[in-house]
Amino acid sequence: MELTGSQVFMYGALASLIAGSATSLGALPIFFMKKTMTEKQLDMALGFAAGVMLAATMFSLIVPAIDLGGITITAIGIIVGAVILELMDTFAPHEHFLKGHEGPNMALVKKVWLFVIAITLHNFPEGMAVGVSFGGGTTDMIKNGIVVATAIGIQNIPEGTATAVSFLKAGYTKKQAFWYSAFSGWVEPIGGVVGAGFIVLMRPALPFFLALAAGAMLYVISDEIIPETHSHGYERAATFSLIFGFLLMMTLDNALG
């Protein structure tokens, strides 16, 4: 079975919407929490999410890119993806929950929108990875897309919880924390549409765009998530959570693939 261009676009957009919606599922527990999560629990949840993302990046983006286009195209794509995220990270003002403000000094930009920009930078490449992963339209690429969407959805659950709790710690109400966290997941379908659209228009460039999405994901893992999990003295717990998430996603990828 091979999907048409419109079907690839539809699958990519729908899968990224479902994966992004998992963030809302992860944010729901804040309504029932009597106490917020500890810093250690937050770091472990984000470490687990990073491990899942890392495995999905390796086995569902980089490996297919190498198989389809070779090492050179894959390496170029990874570098381009990382550079694009670096430029966005440098020139878009945003606020990390732990590291604080980054980017140009824009005192008039409300803090909440700095959070929103940071979340957008984080989740957009995840959605793009889902959209791109369906690109070939073949049976194998459909399975690959399902694996990537599943991985993103799994890691979005603890990430949604951690994000919502972080909003609570920043002084927002539970309702605000839930909706802002949910919004962070809804950014992903935008990335999914962009990724799927690129592939529909330029299907021969699939290996490059798989690698580009991988580079963006690697940047997010290294620049955003891991530093966040290593800022409270719980590096070991966060590291082993990352390894567990990686092993879980590796097993799932093998089972579905």
Results as ranks from 00 to 15, higher is better:
residue 190 I to K: 04
residue 208 F to P: 12
residue 150 T to W: 04
residue 221 I to W: 06
residue 48 F to V: 05
residue 216 A to M: 12
residue 100 G to F: 05
residue 84 I to H: 00
residue 16 S to C: 10
residue 138 T to G: 14
residue 3 L to W: 05
residue 27 A to I: 04
residue 128 M to P: 02
residue 157 I to N: 01
residue 19 A to E: 07
residue 31 F to A: 04
residue 87 L to K: 06
residue 114 L to P: 00
residue 130 V to Y: 02
residue 32 F to W: 10
residue 231 S to H: 14
residue 143 K to Q: 13
residue 215 G to C: 12
residue 107 A to V: 11
residue 123 N to Q: 10
residue 227 P to T: 03
residue 155 Q to A: 01
residue 106 M to Q: 11
residue 57 T to A: 14
residue 11 Y to F: 15
residue 176 Q to V: 09
residue 230 H to T: 09
residue 57 T to Q: 13
residue 78 I to V: 15
residue 67 D to F: 07
residue 232 H to F: 06
residue 151 A to Q: 04
residue 7 Q to Y: 09
residue 104 P to G: 13
residue 8 V to Q: 04
residue 246 F to K: 08
residue 76 I to K: 06
residue 134 F to W: 06
residue 13 A to H: 02
residue 151 A to S: 14
residue 84 I to N: 05
residue 220 V to W: 07
residue 136 G to P: 06
residue 142 I to F: 15
residue 131 G to F: 02
residue 11 Y to T: 07
residue 16 S to L: 12
residue 156 N to C: 11
residue 40 K to T: 05
residue 85 L to I: 04
residue 17 L to M: 10
residue 131 G to P: 01
residue 15 A to Y: 12
residue 98 L to N: 11
residue 240 F to P: 01
residue 254 N to D: 11
residue 124 F to M: 15
residue 249 M to C: 07
residue 61 L to N: 03
residue 157 I to S: 02
residue 101 H to T: 02
residue 105 N to Y: 05
residue 95 E to M: 14
residue 170 A to H: 08
residue 141 M to E: 15
residue 77 G to S: 03
residue 57 T to R: 08
residue 165 V to N: 10
residue 72 T to P: 00
residue 217 M to W: 07
residue 63 V to W: 04
residue 61 L to M: 14
residue 77 G to P: 06
residue 106 M to E: 07
residue 164 A to V: 05
residue 120 T to F: 14
residue 193 V to R: 00
residue 102 E to N: 12
residue 109 V to A: 08
residue 247 L to K: 10
residue 202 M to S: 10
residue 154 I to E: 01
residue 223 D to F: 11
residue 217 M to F: 03
residue 97 F to G: 13
residue 34 K to Y: 03
residue 113 W to R: 08
residue 253 D to A: 15
residue 42 L to P: 02
residue 189 P to W: 01
residue 80 V to A: 15
residue 125 P to D: 05
residue 30 I to C: 07
residue 56 A to D: 09
residue 11 Y to H: 11
